[in-house]
Design a protein around this nucleic acid. Structure first.
Lengths: 345, 345
DNA sequence: TTGTATGCGTTATCAC
DNA sequence: GTGATAACGCATACAA
């Protein structure tokens, strides 16, 4: 097999009719006779004709492709967002270019340029840099886009996010109710709007509840397990240890727990830990992580729908923002603080 | 912004030279004068020109896109394969269409048709159906492809897999050395060459070591956690329970462990469990799963390289097969069997 | 209802 | 060195 795709011209020749009639027949135009259409369809089928999306895209200026920029496929939370996007992509007969950026801006720009070159109909940016000048330039001169889980403070992008404030508030309330007063907080990467919102929500809750507002209780981190590990070691080495930690995400929370275990602390007896994302494995028995649930797939769906609306509209109207509710899932990593702080081991 | 991409014609007009010269200049053709090239580059840059991959693909019959079919992004093992593919895709300046099939053949066919319509240069099939007639038809009339982790017994595809026999053999040896004689085996989906190979390796090892070859020790399953759970319940409800279980993959192993825990059995004291894949979380403290390590990312790289070679060659030469070594990573879910079988709870 | 002609943005061929 | 021009496969305006 030499892989020479059969073209609409081949079909026309085989049918002995004009090329445009084949096109019309296949496109379901109403003014094609029943017999012609039937015949064309049969021949197309027999010849294995498949319209070239490439040629169609060139002609119609619509590629039926969407670019998805994702920070890290390896993070279990991200594929869920992508699944949501894919759900609507399939519905809309679009294909997905999926690009990993590792949170690296050069890599992100490289991918974005490639997507623009491919003339994607739109882009979904999941946890990407959205405020950088070069990114902005690409965004402004490109097709419609939606940001997911990270928002620019300076630009009005369509945006889908979750109720960070509500989530963190609920988590801190939960910990406070259990009796914790010193709650450590691992903040996400600088430059992430989501991380920023969460930090502010934490501070507000701490203040409102009259908890310990010691600045050393905020650890500058990111969303990785090693960072969680370092955060855990840091917090637990403090002269006055926190008895609970709000992590930046689930993976990060696992790092915290690992560190605690290594240092001889029991979770949740000596240290409560709350994650965020509610990845599938958080519910798994041995992990059993208390965490803030995000409607990841639904958010992916919403982002893609917003995008498709934009693609169809062609006009640059008022930007839309969607915020999804979150809820705390209490599992086994939170408990009341130990009465007497455990001596350091 | 109306998102009207600037074309090569715009650049030519702005430069006041012929369109084809712009093309030549940008393409780095040797016979363009230094000054012209420089000027063209400047203008192109200033205008924000980005060549249309769509038009180029139509003209050159090379899209610089690769289709990746994946059984399930949500399974933590798959993204690793994709990462490997992406590594070489970036090197080769290709973009990736990533498609989830959920192991569903209709979905797979839908995606494959879409990929063919997009005129991808090649396809990587990760754990996909490769023996179905319709799939075969698409494959035969399409661009080059490589199968990864699943192989057709009837067709000579380029194939990248891991040493299933070696992996399972090592795992069963390990369990036998610990003193286990009744080892349950959760087999992967029917129709998966990989699953089949593993089953045969298990049987061979059992036979060679003189272990219990009771057919009820083989559970027909798949790669999901719920199935692992069912397998666990099944095995542990047997009048003569196995003392160790070789799962079909890590996620499946976690299901087995969950079931065991629910039924009051301790892992590894009452039941040893071995997984397969070595997903990142397998090493995580609370999971600490003994498992067979697969070089997932490297396999993805190898598959993509094989594919690119094929894409460049254009000829349909001898098919190539690559098998990656595996190794057992002994962690905390395997131990010698309890002396006296624990009474059922 | 069907056919003809044109153009989408490139690259390639061949004159100049 | 440079510049017309054709062609890739399709959709569409328009003619028949």
């Amino acid at each position: 097999m030499d892989h020479k795709p059969v073209t609409i011209r081949d079909v026309a020749r085989e049918c002995g009719i004009a090329l445009s009639t084949v096109s019309n027949a296949l496109a379901g135009k109403p003014y094609v006779s029943k017999e012609t259409r039937q015949h064309v369809k049969e021949v197309a089928e027999r010849l294995g004709y498949r319209a070239s999306s490439v040629a169609r895209a060139l002609r119609t200026n619509r590629s039926f492709t969407i670019g998805v920029l994702i920070a890290d496929v390896a993070n279990p939370a991200f594929p869920d967002f992508v699944r949501g996007v894919e759900d609507v992509a399939i519905r809309e007969k679009c294909s997905l270019f999926v690009c990993n950026t590792d949170g690296d801006i050069e890599r992100q720009i490289w991918h974005m340029q490639s997507l623009l070159g491919n003339r994607v109909d739109g882009m979904v940016l999941i946890s990407q840099h959205v405020d950088d000048d070069r990114v902005r330039d690409l965004l402004d001169n490109g097709p419609p886009h939606v940001t997911l889980q990270r928002r620019s403070p300076r630009f009005d992008d369509d945006y889908v996010g979750s109720d960070n404030v509500g989530g963190i508030t609920e988590a801190v309330d939960h910990l406070a109710e259990l009796g914790h007063t010193r709650i450590g907080f691992v903040r996400g990467p600088m430059g992430s709007s989501t991380a920023q919102e969460r930090l502010e929500a934490y501070r507000a809750a701490v203040s409102r509840l009259g908890l310990d507002a010691d600045p050393e209780l905020v650890f500058d981190g990111d969303y990785t397990m090693p960072t969680g590990h370092r955060a855990g070691r840091f917090f637990l080495a403090l002269p006055r240890r926190p008895t609970a930690i709000m992590a930046s995400n689930d993976i990060n929370a696992l790092g915290v727990i690992d560190a605690a275990t290594e240092m001889g602390f029991d979770v949740p007896d000596d240290l409560s830990v709350v994650g965020l994302d509610d990845i599938a494995l958080a519910a798994y028995g041995r992990i059993n992580l208390t965490t803030i649930h995000l409607q990841k797939r639904a958010m992916g769906v919403a982002a893609a729908e917003l995008l498709m609306k934009r693609v169809r509209a062609k006009r640059r109207g008022q930007s839309r923002i969607m915020t999804f509710p979150t809820h705390l899932v209490v599992r086994g990593t939170t408990a009341p603080p130990a009465k007497a702080p455990k001596p350091r081991s």
